[in-house]
Amino acid sequence: MRDAYIVSSVRTPGCRRGKGALKDTRPDDLLAFIMKAAVEKTGKLEPKDIDDVMIGCSFPEAEQGLNIGRLATQIAGFPITVSGATVNRFCSSGLEAIALSSLRVMAGWSEVTMGGGVESMTYVPMGGNLPRPHPEHAKVHADLYASMGITAENVANRYQVTREDQDAFAYESQMKAAKAQKEGWFTEIVPTPAAKYVLEDNGTYTKETFIQDFDDGVRATTTKEGLAKLRAVFAVNGSVTAGNSSQTTDGAAATMIASGEAVKQYGLKPIAKLKMYTTVGCAPDEMGVGPAVAIPKLLKLANMKTSDIGLWEINEAFASQALYSIRTIGIEDQMDRININGGAIALGHPLGCTGAKLCATLLANMRRKGVKYGVESMCIGGGMGAAALFELCD
């Protein structure tokens, strides 16, 4: 198979659901903007050069429904010839989209593709607008429909991840993110037009636009004492709180992928290659262990060891599952290589966008630190894990 070269990878800021800067920005507008930005970032490609677009979305309905992967290409002003699709693997949807787009290039079916993700948790709530679990099946497998917070409690209880450890992990996520913002390390963020509605004296609303250029959920003033005071929200006498869980967030991200022939034809400068991607199932009622099973499978496929990996992006859906996964994989002594700019507890987890968002962050950090190999992984609702291996280009 051919190599799939990533030639740009960018994201919007991640902003708090219902309260943040993107709460009034439609997801299709958000996605259209970052898709255009991903093309422009290459410095060489034009929209007409794209063969196909794959976009991840965990709840593709309402304002982010009707095949947003295709609609956004038209909102962005891409030629009618650029096709698009929407893919859903819940929390890894954005990474799945990048993998599928890369596979088209690897197989020789396409020369230039785009993979990305979008989720507005403001416009479409967790679970969607009209969830309908199977009535008979739910009696046998209620775990498939369980709250993600309950699965995080299960992981904490079964594998002895203490409240203190979860809060300490959450604190470090906030501190790392605050430092990264201060130092200007989020170079993958593209300043993004955001909408807001202003009430006029006559009682009508006027739509205005402003530029948002930072993740607005980071809490730099977080303290361990403050985290310890938060109550558990998913179980009586539980340990999972709002402070040690990922933030619900709005955001979009996009990655441009090209074949070796296209790299030469257009004079592109590759950032990295997607070397390997895998998924694996696990028990739905402890879906958070996904990275603990996906990463070993990935490394086995690649014939690599944990010591070969220079940077890790392991999605922080909950501190309990992230910590368990890190410990089980055996990389707790590599905390200085894991989520070095903070994770979803501080920066947010915009569901279908997250896989694409973490790709942009990982590649930016690999370039900044000169790291050859990086791994991205996450747990997935319903009981799965996903992991991808990237290799930095010289």
Rank of each mutant, 00 (worst) to 15 (best):
G381N: 01
S259V: 04
Q265R: 14
A322F: 02
A317D: 09
L144C: 11
F78Q: 15
S58G: 15
V240R: 03
A232W: 06
L31S: 03
R327N: 15
A97D: 06
A302K: 09
K273N: 14
E225I: 11
K48C: 05
V112F: 01
V240E: 05
L362E: 06
S102G: 12
K369E: 15
E391R: 10
A195M: 09
P27D: 09
V375D: 10
G65H: 08
I150P: 00
E40Y: 00
E286T: 15
T206D: 00
K44Q: 12
T206M: 01
G382I: 12
A294S: 14
F90K: 04
S93M: 11
D167K: 01
V371H: 10
K176P: 00
G43I: 05
K372I: 07
K229T: 14
G251H: 04
R219C: 04
T223V: 08
G330R: 04
D24L: 05
T279H: 08
P47S: 05
D336V: 01
S110Y: 03
E61A: 03
G77N: 11
L100D: 06
T221F: 01
A272D: 13
A138C: 14
D394K: 12
I98H: 02
I211T: 15
A344R: 08
D51N: 15
N365R: 13
E183S: 09
E225Q: 14
T361C: 02
M126I: 14
G382F: 07
G374M: 10
E172C: 01
S110Q: 09
V293R: 09
A346M: 04
V161N: 07
V218L: 01
S93Y: 13
M106N: 12
S9D: 02
F169V: 05
S239R: 12
A178F: 02
V375H: 05
N341R: 06
C57D: 13
D213V: 10
P60I: 02
V10L: 01
D213C: 07
R11N: 00
A195D: 09
R231D: 11
I257Y: 03
R104M: 15
A220I: 06
H349I: 10
V118C: 07
V293T: 04
E183A: 13
R16K: 15
F390H: 07
A177D: 04
G69H: 11
A142K: 14
W109Q: 14
D216Q: 07
A262P: 03
A170D: 12
E286M: 15
K369H: 15
